[in-house]
Computed example of a mutant assay.
Amino acid sequence: MRIAGYGYEQEPLIDGAAFLDDPLFWPTYLSSMVTPEDDSLVTEAFGVEADDCYEYYARRLRDPDAWPVFQLGLRDGHEVNVVYFNVPREYFCDFLLCRPGGEHALRLATVGGHEMRPGLSWPELGTAAGFSGASLGVVAPNARLLLLLPALGDRDVPTEATARVAAALTSCGAGAKVDELAAHLLERLPRPPWRNVDGVRVSDGRYSMRNPDGGAGLSPADLREISTALAEIS
């Protein structure tokens, strides 16, 4: 795979879609959203052992010779790429908005390591997860929602969000206590407000790439492109 402008084109990026069928993928992926003390909420929901998730992460998802990439197609040909950044001793997930074919990568968020988030508001998450015209990568709405969930951060998450996340968890293999897990995952996320500035959706999160006043804020043109690509479809 290739993501032009990412800066790591020489690294072995691979299509991660096949990982979604692994019974250990989702509990391992979602464990990154909770503290080690709360791992049991995830592992019990999926009926797996924490040690198996740690081994799966180290052996499959953290491979420096194969960086899994999960592509989520959006309207206008844009796509979100969730990338496991696997430089030894620097492991995290990047959430990138790209133009068609992986061009002009814009970092929405980084989760784990040097975290820069949030990258998505709740309405944007719903729009991206529910887009039905995707012709590449991950197309199932529930899988798309869970893949994007770590990049979420919004003060105004509605009360029905817990039920929506719980339904996605169930669809992707969770069983026991999904409502409790869904509520906990949402509670662990940052909660800055979002606002519109000249038609561009921006975050007030201190470490958000989408905060035009923050030290890591993207350019006005990039912020506008992201906002347009993720805007609710009328």
Rank of each mutant, 00 (worst) to 15 (best):
L96H: 06
L97G: 09
C98P: 03
C98N: 13
R99D: 13
P100F: 15
P100R: 03
G102W: 11
G102Y: 08
E103D: 13
H104F: 14
H104R: 15
A105D: 00
A105V: 09
L106F: 10
L106S: 06
R107P: 05
R107I: 06
L108W: 04
L108R: 13
L108S: 10
A109R: 14
T110D: 05
V111N: 09
V111G: 06
V111M: 12
G112R: 05
G112Y: 11
G112L: 09
G113D: 08
G113L: 02
G113N: 11
G113M: 03
G113C: 04
G113S: 04
H114A: 13
E115Y: 03
E115W: 15
M116S: 13
M116P: 01
R117D: 14
P118K: 08
P118H: 12
G119Q: 08
G119V: 04
G119H: 11
G119M: 05
L120T: 01
L120A: 08
W122V: 09
W122H: 11
P123T: 10
E124I: 09
L125V: 11
L125W: 08
G126N: 06
A128N: 04
A128H: 14
F131D: 02
F131W: 12
S132F: 04
S132V: 04
G133E: 13
G133N: 04
A134K: 13
A134M: 03
S135I: 01
L136A: 08
G137R: 09
V138K: 02
V139Q: 15
V139R: 15
A140F: 04
A140P: 03
P141N: 08
N142D: 15
A143G: 07
A143W: 00
A143I: 02
A143N: 01
R144Q: 02
L145Y: 01
L146T: 12
L148M: 14
L148I: 11
L149T: 01
L149V: 02
A151S: 14
G153F: 02
D154C: 01
R155Y: 02
R155P: 00
R155T: 00
D156K: 00
D156P: 00
V157D: 04
T159R: 12
T162Q: 09
T162Y: 00
T162H: 03
R164A: 14
A166W: 00
A168I: 00
A168Y: 00
T170Q: 10
T170L: 08
T170K: 14
C172D: 01
G173R: 03
G173L: 08
G173A: 04
A174Q: 05
V178W: 01
D179Y: 07
D179K: 06
E180S: 05
E180P: 02
E180L: 14
L181V: 09
A182N: 07
A183H: 09
H184D: 08
L185Y: 13
L185I: 10
L186T: 13
